[in-house]
Protein backbone atom coordinates (compact mmCIF):
# COMPACT_ATOMS: atom_id res chain seq x y z
CA UNK A 1 0.00 0.00 0.00
CA UNK A 2 1.39 3.36 -0.95
CA UNK A 3 1.42 6.53 1.10
CA UNK A 4 -1.31 9.02 0.56
CA UNK A 5 -0.40 12.33 2.14
CA UNK A 6 -3.04 14.73 3.30
CA UNK A 7 -3.29 18.16 1.76
CA UNK A 8 -2.46 19.70 5.08
CA UNK A 9 0.63 17.53 5.20
CA UNK A 10 -0.29 16.53 8.73
CA UNK A 11 -0.57 13.00 9.98
CA UNK A 12 -2.99 13.52 12.81
CA UNK A 13 -4.43 10.57 14.56
CA UNK A 14 -8.17 10.52 15.23
CA UNK A 15 -9.02 12.88 18.06
CA UNK A 16 -9.62 11.63 21.56
CA UNK A 17 -13.38 11.29 22.22
CA UNK A 18 -13.29 13.81 25.08
CA UNK A 19 -11.54 16.43 22.96
CA UNK A 20 -13.88 15.74 20.08
CA UNK A 21 -16.88 16.18 22.37
CA UNK A 22 -15.54 19.48 23.68
CA UNK A 23 -14.93 20.68 20.12
CA UNK A 24 -18.46 19.70 19.16
CA UNK A 25 -19.88 21.79 21.98
CA UNK A 26 -17.50 24.70 21.53
CA UNK A 27 -19.22 26.41 18.62
CA UNK A 28 -22.47 26.67 20.53
CA UNK A 29 -20.60 28.30 23.35
CA UNK A 30 -18.37 30.50 21.24
CA UNK A 31 -20.14 31.05 17.96
CA UNK A 32 -21.70 34.33 18.99
CA UNK A 33 -21.13 37.75 17.59
CA UNK A 34 -18.50 39.35 19.81
CA UNK A 35 -20.61 42.47 20.36
CA UNK A 36 -23.47 40.36 21.68
CA UNK A 37 -21.40 38.34 24.07
CA UNK A 38 -21.53 40.74 26.97
CA UNK A 39 -25.33 40.82 26.85
CA UNK A 40 -25.64 37.09 26.52
CA UNK A 41 -23.15 36.21 29.17
CA UNK A 42 -25.83 35.41 31.79
CA UNK A 43 -25.51 31.73 31.07
CA UNK A 44 -21.88 31.73 32.25
CA UNK A 45 -21.54 29.91 35.56
CA UNK A 46 -19.20 32.62 36.75
CA UNK A 47 -19.76 35.24 39.35
CA UNK A 48 -18.66 38.82 38.99
CA UNK A 49 -18.40 41.04 35.92
CA UNK A 50 -14.60 40.94 35.81
CA UNK A 51 -14.59 37.17 35.82
CA UNK A 52 -17.15 37.02 33.01
CA UNK A 53 -15.33 39.61 30.93
CA UNK A 54 -12.01 37.84 31.38
CA UNK A 55 -13.52 34.57 30.27
CA UNK A 56 -15.13 36.13 27.21
CA UNK A 57 -11.89 37.86 26.28
CA UNK A 58 -10.11 34.55 26.53
CA UNK A 59 -12.87 32.84 24.54
CA UNK A 60 -12.57 35.36 21.69
CA UNK A 61 -8.91 34.46 21.30
CA UNK A 62 -9.67 30.79 21.62
CA UNK A 63 -12.49 30.83 19.07
CA UNK A 64 -10.37 30.81 15.87
CA UNK A 65 -8.25 27.99 17.26
CA UNK A 66 -11.28 25.89 18.04
CA UNK A 67 -12.86 26.64 14.68
CA UNK A 68 -9.67 25.46 12.97
CA UNK A 69 -10.17 22.07 14.54
CA UNK A 70 -13.62 21.73 13.04
CA UNK A 71 -13.87 20.61 9.46
CA UNK A 72 -17.63 20.43 8.91
CA UNK A 73 -20.16 22.46 10.86
CA UNK A 74 -23.89 22.47 10.25
CA UNK A 75 -26.21 24.68 12.26
CA UNK A 76 -29.96 24.34 12.05
CA UNK A 77 -29.93 23.28 8.44
CA UNK A 78 -33.24 22.82 6.66
CA UNK A 79 -33.81 21.69 3.12
CA UNK A 80 -37.12 21.37 1.39
CA UNK A 81 -38.07 20.94 -2.24
CA UNK A 82 -41.10 22.51 -3.81
CA UNK A 83 -44.13 20.29 -3.55
CA UNK A 84 -42.60 17.74 -1.19
CA UNK A 85 -42.00 17.36 2.52
CA UNK A 86 -38.79 18.60 4.10
CA UNK A 87 -35.75 16.58 3.06
CA UNK A 88 -33.78 17.84 6.04
CA UNK A 89 -35.03 19.40 9.27
CA UNK A 90 -32.98 21.20 11.88
CA UNK A 91 -29.72 19.41 11.22
CA UNK A 92 -26.98 20.52 13.58
CA UNK A 93 -23.67 18.74 14.04
CA UNK A 94 -19.96 19.30 13.78
CA UNK A 95 -17.22 17.02 12.57
CA UNK A 96 -13.70 17.64 13.75
CA UNK A 97 -10.62 17.58 11.60
CA UNK A 98 -9.43 14.00 11.12
CA UNK A 99 -12.67 12.39 12.23
CA UNK A 100 -14.29 9.40 10.54
CA UNK A 101 -18.07 9.60 10.73
CA UNK A 102 -20.72 7.27 9.37
CA UNK A 103 -23.91 8.92 8.18
CA UNK A 104 -26.59 6.28 8.54
CA UNK A 105 -30.25 5.89 7.91
CA UNK A 106 -32.72 4.12 5.66
CA UNK A 107 -33.25 5.08 2.03
CA UNK A 108 -34.87 8.49 1.78
CA UNK A 109 -33.56 9.57 5.19
CA UNK A 110 -31.74 12.52 3.62
CA UNK A 111 -28.16 11.18 3.57
CA UNK A 112 -27.47 12.11 -0.07
CA UNK A 113 -29.11 15.54 0.32
CA UNK A 114 -26.97 16.21 3.36
CA UNK A 115 -23.77 15.24 1.55
CA UNK A 116 -24.75 17.36 -1.45
CA UNK A 117 -25.33 20.33 0.81
CA UNK A 118 -21.94 19.89 2.47
CA UNK A 119 -20.34 19.65 -0.98
CA UNK A 120 -22.14 22.74 -2.25
CA UNK A 121 -24.17 21.03 -4.98
CA UNK A 122 -27.33 22.11 -3.26
CA UNK A 123 -28.08 25.11 -1.09
CA UNK A 124 -29.96 24.73 2.18
CA UNK A 125 -33.34 26.38 2.54
CA UNK A 126 -32.20 27.62 5.91
CA UNK A 127 -29.21 27.28 8.21
CA UNK A 128 -25.46 27.71 8.16
CA UNK A 129 -22.84 25.35 6.78
CA UNK A 130 -19.16 25.92 7.43
CA UNK A 131 -16.74 23.63 5.65
CA UNK A 132 -13.02 23.98 6.30
CA UNK A 133 -13.64 27.37 7.86
CA UNK A 134 -15.69 28.77 4.99
CA UNK A 135 -19.31 29.65 5.36
CA UNK A 136 -21.02 28.25 2.28
CA UNK A 137 -23.69 30.93 2.22
CA UNK A 138 -20.96 33.52 1.68
CA UNK A 139 -18.90 31.86 -1.02
CA UNK A 140 -19.36 32.56 -4.71
CA UNK A 141 -19.02 30.27 -7.71
CA UNK A 142 -15.24 30.48 -7.64
CA UNK A 143 -15.25 29.74 -3.93
CA UNK A 144 -17.30 26.61 -4.55
CA UNK A 145 -14.69 25.44 -7.10
CA UNK A 146 -11.88 26.09 -4.64
CA UNK A 147 -13.71 24.24 -1.89
CA UNK A 148 -14.32 21.25 -4.13
CA UNK A 149 -10.62 21.00 -4.82
CA UNK A 150 -10.15 20.22 -1.12
CA UNK A 151 -13.06 17.82 -0.94
CA UNK A 152 -13.23 14.40 -2.58
CA UNK A 153 -16.71 13.09 -3.30
CA UNK A 154 -17.51 9.49 -4.12
CA UNK A 155 -20.90 9.57 -5.79
CA UNK A 156 -23.42 6.77 -5.48
CA UNK A 157 -23.71 6.66 -9.28
CA UNK A 158 -19.91 7.09 -9.71
CA UNK A 159 -20.24 10.03 -12.14
CA UNK A 160 -17.44 8.85 -14.41
CA UNK A 161 -16.96 10.25 -17.90
CA UNK A 162 -17.79 7.38 -20.27
CA UNK A 163 -15.69 8.64 -23.17
CA UNK A 164 -12.53 8.93 -21.10
CA UNK A 165 -10.40 6.04 -19.93
CA UNK A 166 -9.96 5.11 -16.28
CA UNK A 167 -6.61 6.93 -16.31
CA UNK A 168 -8.10 10.07 -17.89
CA UNK A 169 -11.02 10.07 -15.46
CA UNK A 170 -8.72 10.03 -12.47
CA UNK A 171 -6.22 12.43 -14.06
CA UNK A 172 -8.94 15.00 -14.69
CA UNK A 173 -9.28 15.60 -10.94
CA UNK A 174 -5.65 16.76 -10.90
CA UNK A 175 -5.71 18.57 -14.25
CA UNK A 176 -8.53 20.85 -13.11
CA UNK A 177 -6.42 22.04 -10.19
CA UNK A 178 -3.44 22.69 -12.42
CA UNK A 179 -1.08 19.89 -11.44
CA UNK A 180 1.78 19.50 -13.95
CA UNK A 181 1.55 16.60 -16.45
CA UNK A 182 4.48 14.72 -14.92
CA UNK A 183 3.02 14.89 -11.45
CA UNK A 184 -0.40 13.87 -12.77
CA UNK A 185 1.12 10.78 -14.35
CA UNK A 186 2.90 9.60 -11.21
CA UNK A 187 0.03 10.37 -8.85
CA UNK A 188 -2.58 8.68 -11.02
CA UNK A 189 -0.49 5.56 -11.44
CA UNK A 190 0.11 5.46 -7.71
CA UNK A 191 -3.56 5.82 -6.77
CA UNK A 192 -4.63 3.27 -9.39
CA UNK A 193 -2.21 0.79 -7.85
CA UNK A 194 -3.62 1.71 -4.45
CA UNK A 195 -7.15 0.77 -5.47
CA UNK A 196 -5.93 -2.22 -7.50
CA UNK A 197 -6.85 -0.91 -10.94
CA UNK A 198 -3.52 -0.15 -12.58
CA UNK A 199 -4.07 -2.93 -15.10
CA UNK A 200 -7.38 -1.29 -16.08
CA UNK A 201 -5.92 2.18 -16.71
CA UNK A 202 -6.71 2.23 -20.43
CA UNK A 203 -10.20 0.80 -20.15
CA UNK A 204 -13.33 2.87 -20.55
CA UNK A 205 -15.54 2.89 -17.40
CA UNK A 206 -18.45 1.14 -19.09
CA UNK A 207 -16.30 -1.93 -19.78
CA UNK A 208 -15.63 -2.34 -16.05
CA UNK A 209 -17.72 -4.07 -13.39
CA UNK A 210 -19.76 -2.01 -10.88
CA UNK A 211 -17.18 -2.62 -8.17
CA UNK A 212 -14.34 -1.53 -10.43
CA UNK A 213 -16.20 1.61 -11.45
CA UNK A 214 -16.73 2.34 -7.78
CA UNK A 215 -13.00 2.04 -7.18
CA UNK A 216 -12.27 4.39 -10.10
CA UNK A 217 -14.61 6.92 -8.48
CA UNK A 218 -12.79 6.43 -5.16
CA UNK A 219 -9.40 6.82 -6.87
CA UNK A 220 -10.57 10.07 -8.47
CA UNK A 221 -11.75 11.37 -5.12
CA UNK A 222 -8.52 10.44 -3.35
CA UNK A 223 -5.93 11.33 -5.97
CA UNK A 224 -5.96 15.02 -5.06
CA UNK A 225 -5.32 14.12 -1.42
CA UNK A 226 -8.43 15.87 -0.12
CA UNK A 227 -8.81 17.37 3.32
CA UNK A 228 -12.32 15.95 3.41
CA UNK A 229 -13.71 12.81 1.82
CA UNK A 230 -17.46 12.55 1.35
CA UNK A 231 -18.74 9.19 0.21
CA UNK A 232 -22.32 8.40 -0.71
CA UNK A 233 -22.97 4.68 -0.26
CA UNK A 234 -19.57 3.75 -1.66
CA UNK A 235 -20.08 0.12 -0.77
CA UNK A 236 -23.61 -0.13 -2.07
CA UNK A 237 -22.63 -2.05 -5.20
CA UNK A 238 -19.94 -4.18 -3.66
CA UNK A 239 -19.84 -7.65 -2.12
CA UNK A 240 -19.10 -7.71 1.64
CA UNK A 241 -15.42 -8.53 1.16
CA UNK A 242 -14.84 -5.66 -1.25
CA UNK A 243 -16.98 -3.37 0.91
CA UNK A 244 -14.70 -4.11 3.88
CA UNK A 245 -11.61 -3.40 1.84
CA UNK A 246 -13.05 -0.08 0.66
CA UNK A 247 -13.83 1.01 4.21
CA UNK A 248 -10.36 -0.11 5.28
CA UNK A 249 -8.99 2.05 2.51
CA UNK A 250 -11.01 4.99 3.81
CA UNK A 251 -9.75 4.25 7.30
CA UNK A 252 -6.15 4.39 6.05
CA UNK A 253 -6.82 7.70 4.33
CA UNK A 254 -8.46 8.95 7.52
CA UNK A 255 -5.49 7.82 9.57
CA UNK A 256 -3.37 10.15 7.49
CA UNK A 257 -5.51 13.15 8.40
CA UNK A 258 -8.38 13.25 5.94
CA UNK A 259 -11.78 13.84 7.50
CA UNK A 260 -14.21 11.20 6.26
CA UNK A 261 -17.99 11.43 6.16
CA UNK A 262 -19.42 8.25 4.70
CA UNK A 263 -23.11 7.61 4.09
CA UNK A 264 -24.16 4.00 4.40
CA UNK A 265 -27.05 1.89 5.55
CA UNK A 266 -24.85 -1.19 6.02
CA UNK A 267 -25.13 -1.87 9.77
CA UNK A 268 -22.53 -4.63 9.67
CA UNK A 269 -19.91 -2.22 8.39
CA UNK A 270 -20.78 0.40 10.99
CA UNK A 271 -20.57 -2.11 13.79
CA UNK A 272 -17.40 -3.61 12.48
CA UNK A 273 -15.53 -0.34 12.15
CA UNK A 274 -17.09 1.24 15.25
CA UNK A 275 -16.73 4.91 14.42
CA UNK A 276 -18.90 7.86 15.33
CA UNK A 277 -22.34 7.67 13.79
CA UNK A 278 -24.88 10.31 12.81
CA UNK A 279 -28.21 8.63 12.25
CA UNK A 280 -30.84 10.24 10.11
CA UNK A 281 -34.46 9.40 9.66
CA UNK A 282 -36.93 11.36 7.54
CA UNK A 283 -34.55 14.27 7.42
CA UNK A 284 -33.93 14.52 11.15
CA UNK A 285 -31.02 13.46 13.30
CA UNK A 286 -32.18 10.66 15.55
CA UNK A 287 -28.92 9.64 17.07
Amino acid sequence: MINVETSSGGHSTPLQPSLRKWISIAPFVLDRKCSAWDNEAKWLPLSGEICKKSFLKFARYLYPTVICLLMIQLYHVYKSYEGSSAALSDITFTIAKGEFVFLTGPSGAGKTTLLKIVFGIERPTEGQIIVDGRNQSRINNRGVSLLRRKVGFVFQDFKLLPKKTVYENVALALEVIGVSPGEVRSKVQRILSYVGLRHRANFKPLSLSGGEQQRVAIARALVKQPAILLADEPTGNLDPELANSIVELFRDVNAMGTTVLMATHDKTLIERFGRRRIALDRGRIIG
Partner: peptide
Protein backbone atom coordinates in the same frame (compact mmCIF):
# COMPACT_ATOMS: atom_id res chain seq x y z
CA UNK B 1 -24.23 18.01 -20.10
CA UNK B 2 -23.04 15.28 -17.74
CA UNK B 3 -19.41 15.81 -18.75
CA UNK B 4 -19.69 19.53 -17.92
CA UNK B 5 -21.41 18.84 -14.60
CA UNK B 6 -18.92 16.17 -13.56
CA UNK B 7 -15.98 18.40 -14.42
CA UNK B 8 -17.54 21.16 -12.35
CA UNK B 9 -18.14 18.75 -9.46
CA UNK B 10 -14.50 17.78 -9.25
CA UNK B 11 -13.51 21.40 -8.77
CA UNK B 12 -12.93 22.81 -12.26
CA UNK B 13 -13.36 26.55 -12.54
CA UNK B 14 -15.88 27.95 -15.01
CA UNK B 15 -13.05 29.30 -17.14
CA UNK B 16 -11.47 25.84 -17.28
Amino acid sequence: KSEIEITRLIGASNLY
